[in-house]
Design a protein around this nucleic acid. Structure first.
Lengths: 358, 358
DNA sequence: CTGAAAGCGCTTACAG
DNA sequence: CTGAAAGCGCTTACAG
């Protein structure tokens, strides 16, 4: 593989001039630049990014540690992150924690060892000591989606409270009274916030959320299945279940079907996070949609600002309820707290979109 | 950030000894090793992977360029790849080509600039000159899923011919006669092979595949929608549609529903690539399942062999048909070419699994 | 505008 | 068993 020395020899200049020509340094004569470019083309030279990084102390690389690559939500997030990063001249290396603390640490450590310029993190394990360590060491970090309270790092996330309140109103309006939730790990912010929002909204309507109606999941399909089974084994099973992510909703659907029960006939089902397939499930599933792409882009912009030495603000974007048929006959839709409906990426005759209040 | 010199000073040894102690070199006295380890712990030292890579000329990193991160097939593949790579001591950097040739080239180039030790590639653009260039330059490469004919590189993929033949038998057995396919780009191997297999299987049964029944897609949902619409506009629309990937199947389903038609009542639908959601769509979708995890692992093993200087063989694993209800009343299932059914990851009352012949 | 030289943080023959 | 020194491929003050 041709190195900068080969190019210099071929062009009849010093390596310094080659470097300057390639990096657009102004003080290179047009003649020298032309010879360098010709030599580069002739040799098929490509600068060694490893050497350059060592010298410049920057890798032009961002790390992104997500909780689960098999979750379409994180996958869309990753795609948006990569796009925005590329637009700003950065590469991104994705680490998949698979909802496992050790794996999160493994990836964070590996990324740090590679001297990424900044880290985008959606903590699976908010208790990992690596996080405050990295912050203290001065590594630019931004949390996306999930965050760690108390750690001084900008957070880019969606606020689902309004949408959850809309969902609860929707469920109660359809006559459901025994509302249950399959929660994510309480240690994660998205795990606890969604239950809190659900409980708060129920309280507004004077409805309680008994412990038996809080299933403990881990954001994976299997846990959704188990939680749903436990609900169905109750002497008085819930008549509506809200899964805190799309994978647990899938698991819950599996469990409900396995008992020969139907949605929404026997039990209503709704999910946090909207995905294209929800339009085509039987029945189409009512979900809370996050502005995923915007979150990914905003997170990258914030991180790049941090890398630039600034202190970007946290960003919170609203989520919104997308009503389909999984909670009961749609009937005449009453707009919950607001007016204008928003277009949904997958228009469907049975879909109604509602925006939560700001 | 503490460097190796700081550790050496703290431990009272030379940087050479620190390096040896950290890399498990045998000739380090227990005493020195202990002092080094203590110093490392005290300073929170982490070796700079960039510097190490520059010196050793290896990054212990694999590149993986996939065609579309939003496609669950590639996402599972990526997960399996990362797992196996990690087990073998490698990191992986994923590049998403998004089915766009320029993006594929961008990622291949970036990965090569970073001096990855080897590249796993599922070519979106088989015509890219970067591929033969890299092969010529000696970069270890292995193709996964898709490949480029004529390029001397091991290929790890699934052979869907048996399963497609099973599917055609299944469709004809249910009384469908006008079978259509939504194909991927003819330039990609998976794009052309699936049509070829479909056409060959039809010919076996004396059925023709008219041009009008070959929809040209690009493996994205939107193209599936358009192709399905064109089919439905035909004076004699097909009575069964086979989408060459799961995203085009989603698009086709959208289009069929938008016309107020039902599956399989008005038209049958099947897809290449099985995904968990196919169990819960309305109706559950008959699909051809690839052994995705095995493919990912085998690809990594082959690539690591290549990096080790060996010449691994190509690997071809069989795909299999998973019958659900989207092609018509399931009725008594006749096993097509073989005997034993295989367990499916998502057992479901309406699912029957068939293995294609070897 | 250009080149010689130092140096980024490691690893590894070489000599002892 | 250990250290001094060279060198991986670049970039960048410094001097001219």
């Amino acid at each position: 593989m041709a190195g900068i020395k080969d190019v210099a020899a071929e062009a009849g200049v010093s390596v310094a001039t080659v470097s300057r020509a390639l990096n657009g340094h102004p003080s290179v004569s047009p003649a020298a630049r032309a010879r360098v470019l010709a030599a580069v083309a002739a040799l098929g030279y490509r600068p060694n990014a490893v050497a350059r990084s060592l010298r410049t102390d920057q890798t032009r690389t961002l790390g992104l540690v997500i909780s689960d690559v098999l979750n379409p939500y994180f996958t869309s997030l990753a795609r948006a992150v990569e796009e925005e990063a590329r637009a700003l001249g950065y590469s991104v290396i994705i680490g998949n924690a698979d909802e496992r603390p050790e794996l999160q640490d493994h990836h964070v450590r590996t990324l740090l060892d590679r001297r990424i310029d900044g880290l985008l993190l959606s903590p699976t394990d908010p208790g990992s000591p690596l996080i405050p360590d990295a912050v203290r060491a001065g590594t630019p970090i931004v949390f996306v989606d999930r965050w760690v309270p108390g750690v001084q790092v900008p957070v880019v996330r969606a606020d689902g409270r309004g949408a959850v309140a809309d969902l609860v109103g929707h469920l109660l309006g359809l006559g459901h009274r025994r509302l249950a939730i399959i929660a994510g790990p309480a240690a994660t912010t998205t795990g606890s916030e969604r239950v809190d929002a659900f409980r708060a909204a129920l309280r507004e309507h004077g409805v309680a959320l008994p412990d038996a109606y809080i299933g403990q999941g881990d954001f994976q399909a299997e846990s959704g299945r188990r939680a749903a089974e436990r609900f169905l084994d109750l002497p008085e099973p819930p008549d509506a279940v809200f899964a805190a992510d799309n994978l647990m909703a899938l698991g819950a659907l599996d469990a409900i079907r396995a008992r020969g029960l139907t949605v929404p006939g026997d039990i209503a089902l709704a999910a946090f996070d909207d995905i294209p397939w929800f339009v085509h499930t039987d029945p189409p599933i009512t979900a809370i949609a996050q502005p995923t792409e915007e979150l990914g882009r905003a997170a990258v912009r914030a991180l790049v600002e941090r890398i630039g030495g600034h202190s970007p603000d946290s960003v919170t974007l609203p989520a919104r309820l997308v009503v389909r048929r999984s909670c009961g006959a749609s009937g005449p839709v009453e707009e919950p707290h607001t007016a204008a409906p928003i277009a949904h990426p997958h228009p469907h005759p049975h879909t109604t979109v509602r925006r939560s209040n700001p």
